[in-house]
Write a protein that binds this DNA or RNA. Sequence first.
DNA 1: CGTTCTAATATGTATATACATAATCGCCAT
DNA 2: ATGGCGATTATGTATATACATATTAGAACG
Lengths: 246, 246
Amino acid sequence: MSMIETAAVEGGGSLHQRILSDISEKILSGVWVPGFRIPFEHELTAEYNCSRMTVNKALSQLAKAGLIERRRRSGSFVRQPQSQAAVLEIHDIRIEVEALGLAYRYERVTRQKRRSSAEDRGLLELGAAGQVLALECRHFAGKRPFAHEQRLINLAAVAEAAEEEFLDIAPGPWLIGRVPWSEAEHRIRAVAADRHIAEALDIATGAPCLVVERRTWSAEYPVTQVRFTYAAESHTLVARFRPSQG
Amino acid sequence: MSMIETAAVEGGGSLHQRILSDISEKILSGVWVPGFRIPFEHELTAEYNCSRMTVNKALSQLAKAGLIERRRRSGSFVRQPQSQAAVLEIHDIRIEVEALGLAYRYERVTRQKRRSSAEDRGLLELGAAGQVLALECRHFAGKRPFAHEQRLINLAAVAEAAEEEFLDIAPGPWLIGRVPWSEAEHRIRAVAADRHIAEALDIATGAPCLVVERRTWSAEYPVTQVRFTYAAESHTLVARFRPSQG
DNA sequence: CGTTCTAATATGTATATACATAATCGCCAT
DNA sequence: ATGGCGATTATGTATATACATATTAGAACG
């Protein structure tokens, strides 16, 4: 088991975190099935040789996360799984634009290779410093700007990106062709356009925009972080799915 | 000192919950802006006249929820994205709100049973005319409106909804308990708040909002169509997934 | 036989205390 | 100035303890 995976599962070296992840592990792996009464606090206290407060902290968090249900006098029970994962497709803007029957055009605005700043590392969830490539691009639908793209690429994961100018091909399609992703996270929200975005998208400052941020990992290594900003009128995200088995 | 007087009684009777919701309230309402250093633990200890452990519990939860960032030796700071919660799964707003440590409250605004209009049939993708139930609701986080809900329920698919007033239970949870869904479609976009929404969410007209629309089918029959509108500062959608394995 | 009361029990919250850890400030020597 | 180094400071974690609260098993009673 790799360091990164361990960190992702266990979260930290503290004891209550270990208790928490041990129990999560048992529940998520199915060893403790829904309805099962997990050990009492005083039993876990004995098992881990620690105080009840420490056990309580772990169990409270599990209850908050919805994995267990706590009942006074009765104990704590594994809950029925209740959430369905939705799959949002990794979208290709060219395809979206062409689906609208408009001509697609891509423009690279800026490109900078640099040593990762603290902010870069935060965005990429990168542990150590290293080279990154920062890109700013625009995507047009017909004559109008359709989306603004700000992207960071972790050069430690994708070294060959350092040689690419991205003048003729957008980083999204370029990356998809080269780096298989194993995990992605989307954050979607509405914002008011700041000056920079307003100019890039040719809309009024303060106009509502849809922001889609995505981080992608490949085999536990952060690959890229990207923020797409769309003018409100120009875009609707569609996610259609069926519940998975569970 | 006088802060104790004005403290809202929300999120449960316990003290750490009250501290948590007082601070959430300040952040979500914008009184404490991103970057602001919130009082030190020892200051809050004095203010609430309690132990540091109690304050620590509240602040740790706020950090976990992403509202603040804690830095040793420096203090705790309001984070940039004001709230992120929840996943793109079966939306339960109550859970999102409670994950923020705030008291959840639900309010039904209007309820109308009617023969489906052409617009209704379009929204539900309904072939033939029939009875529908139209609902308008609000969801509160603490004292502030968190989300506005407009919903249509196809009474041909869920007849028993005709008898429910939805005064005490939100239509989402009510439906989940009754109708298994086999397919859903989300549409997500940013809009500027119109007069009606601005009033309902207590924000300025024209302020950016995140709109999540969902249509749900059960065994090919349209069940419900719902539109949630969130004020931009109050919500970020998060969807995390892996393509192949788990 | 059913109801009410009581005691036992597990969790919920809070306390005071202790030491660890990370980041920063300021002093001092180079 | 400046680079290192200890002192300071705020948070992070853990302890033992205490009492509150919800729930239930079982005893006592009508």
